[in-house]
């Protein structure tokens, strides 16, 4: 009797769980550019790290990486790592929104607890710290092609490209972030802080996303302010190579 009751209870609870959990899709919204509302949210949620004046000098900024990269972003200099625009240019609003939503693994938590409207308001406010946002219209890069099936041949091709494009100098032959340049301590970010290349075998270290499209975007845009360059010119005309390389890197994470 007890077994029957338990089965009924588990079935009901499980069914309800599936029903409710399937309905948690975040609504999309149009950008809300209310700067003053964004300022209030920024001061509550962001200023403790990024500073009240956006210089990345909030009272908690130093502790995350005291003597090495990466510290909180300085919004007043217009230098952004995570973009879908060409190297050296400003990010799109969508790029800033994506970073606020997803966070940066290891360094910045996700602020998806803010509503989409609130996140767009924060984007609008962050842009007021740098006048260049009013003068420049960032140009979005186009990630050519579409993901290639992750076959053994594709992964092998990507591995060869990893060597040919000199990725191993920083990331190491095993892609664990221990390349000879890194080991020599020669890598610094734009503020002069020692920076370590990502361990590409550790999914929590991927700061700009772990989908094939995220990886290709990172290869094409580079990470401004860090030693990670843009490979846009090298990949021009060889777009498939970017997808092969992405397949190889995903294989390091056990994703085929």
């Amino acid at each position: 009797m007890m077994k029957v009751l338990c089965r009924i209870v588990f079935t009901l609870v499980g069914g309800l769980w599936v029903f409710w959990s399937s309905g948690t899709v975040e609504a999309t919204s149009q950008p809300d550019k209310d700067v003053s509302a964004g300022a209030i949210i920024y001061e509550r949620s962001c200023s403790v790290c990024h500073g009240i004046s956006g210089k990345g000098d909030g009272p908690a900024a130093f502790y995350n990486s005291a003597y090495s990269a990466s510290r909180a972003r300085d919004f007043t200099v217009g230098n952004y790592k995570f973009r879908s625009t060409i190297s050296g240019s400003l990010p799109l609003d969508q790029d800033l929104f994506r970073t606020i939503t997803n966070g940066i693994p290891g360094y910045m938590p996700s602020f998806s607890g803010l509503s989409p409207d609130q996140r767009w308001q924060v984007v609008a406010y962050i842009k007021t710290f740098y006048a260049g946002f009013e003068e420049e219209t960032p140009e979005q890069i186009h990630v050519e092609g579409s993901p290639i099936p992750s076959t053994a041949e594709s992964v092998q091709r990507g591995k060869a490209l990893f060597q040919a494009m000199d990725c191993h100098s920083c990331h190491g032959a095993q892609a664990r972030g221990a390349g000879p340049v890194a080991v020599a301590g020669e890598l610094t970010d734009s503020s002069g802080l020692l920076i370590s290349p990502n361990d590409l075998t550790n999914p929590t270290g991927w700061k700009n996303g772990t989908t094939a499209r995220d990886i290709v975007r990172t290869l094409v845009t580079g990470l401004d302010g860090t030693p990670m360059p843009s490979y846009e010119s090298q990949l021009a005309g060889h777009e498939d190579d970017a997808w092969h390389l992405a397949n190889y890197l995903l294989s390091l994470l056990g994703q085929h």
């Binding site: 009272p59 995350n64 360094y107 910045m108």
Partner: peptide
């Protein structure tokens, strides 16, 4: 939250202002 301890701590266990 997929962050390291020092996001919230001066050094664990002391909290920093964010923590």
């Amino acid at each position: 939250y997929q962050v390291n301890c020092n996001v919230c701590h001066v050094r664990w266990p002391r909290l920093n202002p964010f923590g």
